[in-house]
Amino acid sequence: MLLTLRMVLFYLGYLLSIVWFSTTGIVFFSFFPYRIRSRYILLWNRFIIFWAALICGVRVKVIGAENLPKGPYVALSKHQSQWETYFLQYFLSPVSIVLKRELLNLPFFGWGLRLANPIAIDRGNPKQALKQTLDKGCKHLANNISVLIFPEGTRTKPGQDSKYAPAVPILQWLPGYRLYR
């Protein structure tokens, strides 16, 4: 019963905060440069991280942050839940996330997500998606904005082996690309 109550409370805060941050972001911040818009939208990510800790008891410990490059870089992450998208977008900021373009059409969530200037790709057209990722990714890197990619292309269960998108080996041609493990 307590678990159900916590879940309902978490999702209530989650939904209300999406509506709030998306609406206020569009109304007040859509005309500002990327750095200002993204900082505002990242407040939502911070809120979700805080809300998950407060309501659900989620705790995060980052190990190895000192190994991240100082300049912009391409980050690859396993995609196992919604959690890493919120956390990594905040933690690696400034970062542009590569995502399926359908997410941008979701009411409120997608509208706010547009303000963060993601690289929205059409997964139905892999060749075009790769070209977009490379073109826009290089532009972001040149503007000191890192790029976050989930190489499986979709969520996988924790611990499950997955196939990576065929474009991942192409990433080596991005300027400044280095593989960190």
Rank of each mutant, 00 (worst) to 15 (best):
L2F: 11
T4I: 12
R6S: 05
M7G: 03
F10T: 06
F10L: 09
F10K: 01
L12H: 03
Y14H: 07
L15V: 06
L15G: 14
S17V: 01
W20D: 01
W20R: 01
S22M: 03
T23R: 03
I26T: 11
I26S: 06
I26F: 09
F29Y: 15
F29Q: 01
F29V: 02
S30A: 12
F31I: 00
F32T: 13
P33M: 09
Y34V: 13
I36R: 11
I36Q: 08
R37C: 09
R37I: 06
R39F: 04
R39T: 08
R39E: 04
Y40A: 06
L43F: 02
L43A: 10
W44F: 08
N45Q: 05
N45L: 02
N45P: 03
R46D: 14
I48S: 01
F50K: 11
A52I: 04
A53I: 00
I55S: 03
G57N: 09
V58G: 06
V58L: 15
V60A: 05
K61H: 12
K61Q: 10
V62A: 10
I63K: 11
E66L: 00
L68H: 00
P69G: 05
P69S: 03
G71W: 00
P72A: 15
P72Y: 03
Y73P: 00
Q80W: 01
Y86T: 00
Y86V: 09
L88W: 13
Q89E: 14
Q89P: 10
Y90G: 07
Y90V: 05
Y90C: 13
F91E: 12
S93L: 05
V95T: 11
S96I: 04
S96M: 11
S96H: 10
I97P: 02
I97C: 15
K100L: 07
L104R: 01
N105H: 13
F108I: 11
F109R: 01
G110V: 04
G112A: 08
R114A: 14
L115I: 04
A116I: 12
I119D: 07
D122M: 04
R123K: 15
G124M: 10
G124L: 10
Q128K: 12
A129D: 10
T133S: 11
L134S: 04
D135I: 09
D135S: 13
D135F: 14
K136D: 12
K136M: 13
H140E: 11
H140M: 13
H140I: 02
S146M: 08
S146F: 02
V147P: 06
F150P: 04
P151C: 08
E152Y: 03
G153Q: 01
G153L: 10
G153A: 12
R155H: 03
T156E: 05
K157P: 00
G159Y: 10
K163G: 12
P166D: 08
I170T: 14
L171T: 10
W173E: 13
G176N: 02
Y180A: 01
